[in-house]
Amino acid sequence: MRNIKPELIAFIDDKLKNNGSAQYALREGDARSLFIYAAEACVGQMEKGVNSGYFVELCQRTVDNYAGGEAWCMAFIESMLSYVEHKLGVTSPVFSSEHCLTVWQNTPDEQRVRNRPLPGAIIIWRHGNTSNGHTGIVTEFLCDKMLTVEGNTGNGSFREGDGVYQKKRSTNIDGDMRVMGFLIPFTKLAV
């Protein structure tokens, strides 16, 4: 179960207070757009050490109230989902876990999309034939590329990086990471 910390809510609220589009999404109950704006507001947040630091640990605690230096790309996504749930009073059908492939396997099939979902979809990559993965939020599609916002990545790294970045990725394979598919984060507008 996701439970975003009040400090992270306040941080994102402060970042979005002057974003007219985000404020419109809040008023209109547009969960998917708010999900994107919240993630974009976090771009530039960096680790302090390895898989640690105040922002990172707030994200890690969203899922299980534990921050022990674990990889945090999925914890970042779960935190953005929890932010939208908190602000709009909606519930995402996306399974709650810090493990990318566990989220993929346990999220209902009707939330899965294999090709070109709408912006705001959660992308899940698999690292080779391992049980390791990576994740991000798709913000735009450009032919065979996509723009994403990802936690625990970096300028030159694909996964296990040092912060929240906007990235341009292949829609299929990037290095030894293969796209498993995409998850629809919210199914409807808030009421």
Rank of each mutant, 00 (worst) to 15 (best):
V56N: 09
E57V: 06
C59N: 13
C59S: 07
Q60P: 04
Q60D: 03
R61I: 06
V63S: 08
V63M: 12
D64Y: 05
D64I: 12
N65R: 12
N65H: 12
G68R: 06
G68L: 03
E70W: 11
E70G: 10
A71R: 09
A71I: 06
W72I: 01
C73W: 01
C73T: 02
C73S: 10
C73K: 00
A75H: 14
F76E: 02
F76A: 07
I77V: 15
I77E: 06
E78L: 00
M80S: 05
S82C: 11
S82L: 09
E85A: 07
E85M: 10
E85N: 07
E85R: 10
K87L: 02
K87Y: 04
L88C: 03
V90D: 04
T91Q: 13
S92D: 04
S92M: 01
V94A: 08
V94N: 04
V94K: 07
F95G: 00
F95W: 11
F95T: 00
S96R: 01
S96H: 06
H99M: 12
C100A: 15
T102P: 00
T102N: 11
V103L: 10
W104S: 02
W104T: 00
W104I: 03
W104N: 01
Q105R: 15
Q105E: 15
Q105F: 10
N106I: 09
N106M: 14
N106L: 14
T107A: 02
T107Y: 01
P108S: 08
E110H: 10
V113N: 01
V113K: 08
V113I: 13
R114G: 00
R116A: 09
R116G: 03
P117L: 12
P119Y: 08
P119M: 12
P119T: 13
P119I: 13
A121W: 10
A121Q: 09
I123N: 05
I123K: 08
I124P: 04
G128E: 13
S131T: 13
N132R: 12
G133C: 10
H134P: 02
H134D: 05
T135S: 13
G136K: 11
G136L: 11
I137L: 02
I137W: 00
V138R: 09
V138P: 05
T139R: 11
T139E: 01
E140T: 07
F141H: 10
F141R: 05
F141E: 03
C143M: 04
C143T: 11
D144Y: 04
D144H: 07
K145T: 08
K145R: 15
K145C: 06
K145L: 14
M146A: 14
M146L: 15
M146H: 03
L147R: 15
T148Q: 02
T148D: 00
E150L: 10
T153H: 04
N155A: 11
N155H: 12
F158N: 11
F158G: 03
R159F: 13
E160A: 14
G161K: 00
G161Y: 02
G161N: 01
D162G: 09
D162I: 09
D162V: 03
V164T: 08
Q166P: 00
K167Q: 07
T171Y: 03
T171N: 04
N172C: 07
D174P: 00
G175P: 05
M177R: 10
R178I: 11
R178L: 09
V179A: 08
M180V: 14
M180L: 15
G181E: 05
G181D: 06
F182R: 05
L183I: 14
I184T: 12
P185L: 02
P185C: 02
F186C: 01
